[in-house]
Design a protein around this nucleic acid. Sequence first.
DNA 1: GGGCCCGCAGGG
DNA 2: CCCTGCGGGCCC
Length: 348
Amino acid sequence: MRSSYRHLPDGPEEALQPIGVALTYTYMTTNRAKVLLWLLHMPSCCSMAVQFGHIAGYPTGSPFKNREELRIAGLHSQNMAGISGNAKTGADAIVVSGGYVDDADYGEIIIYTGHGGRDPNTGRQIRDQELIDSGNAALVRSELEGLPVRVIRGRHNKRHHQSPFAPSSGYRYDGLYRVESHWAKMGVDGFRVWQFRLVKLKDGEVSTPKDTSPASIDQYAVGPAPVTTSIMQRIVRNSMIAHIVKSWYSHECQVCGLAIQVEGGLYSEGAHIRGLGQPHHGPDVPENLLCLCPNDHVRFDNGAIYLTDELHVMDALTGQAVGQLRVHKNHKIDLRHVAYHRECWTKD
DNA sequence: GGGCCCGCAGGG
DNA sequence: CCCTGCGGGCCC
């Protein structure tokens, strides 16, 4: 019997997550039913949640037998692909198993090759990689927004080159990294590959120099926080709040309307109205955050522009209004913080 | 070990 | 639906 190869879980419930439609979809067999469910699934498929940061119950060092276990645990959404996530929300996890010849694993630093352009049988590159491929663009998005990426190392088999950091069997969760930079280069097979430099985030490392704010808003927490990693969760949460605000504006600056375009996506910055930490103690909440282009971020942080209570944008040099702040309907801006910022930069 | 084929999630 | 992707089990 050919079908006797197939590995099925002992009971449907134990191996599958409780996500109604997805569960049903998994067990549909006829093509017609699949198409129907696919159509039903389409309108909501873009809002699939992507979990950033640590996953509760799976501390750094947690072992996994295979990719399926990683998927069920929620550490990595893909069954085969190395990059989990999408271009819009960012990459939440990668699997490092040396599958690409241009990879390099230095432990705390990983040079990770993007996907695409590979012959699935030989593993060699047979064409150029594209940055707009969703997985590659997802890593760019994580870089632009400072999102933490879960790194999972897999056993390196004979086809892959060896890394001393790879587990001897299965997969191992190795903690959170940030995407520091990316670039294109000619791969060893003679085709362009995109590469990403990932640097391990240490407990105690802060993502922004000014960040000493109390982690006071639990509604933006990304999943249940593991007990021993509160600092890490705060970093994650900061990124996520900026992520939410930026998404309201599609990275368009609230002052000038510009969205910086780079290959792989749009860029904007989350600017705190009332500074975080000493001595301002501004909260890290959407009500205290603006989505700005880098130029207006610098102008705002240094008092070259400030806001009135009517959210007019004021030029500090001339004292004249130069525009109206753009505000999304979901974005409630706390005027107390606006006043605090204004009083830092005006004489009376 | 190589080859085959079955697999699923996500994006187009 | 199609296709791709740093799987994986099993046969030989």
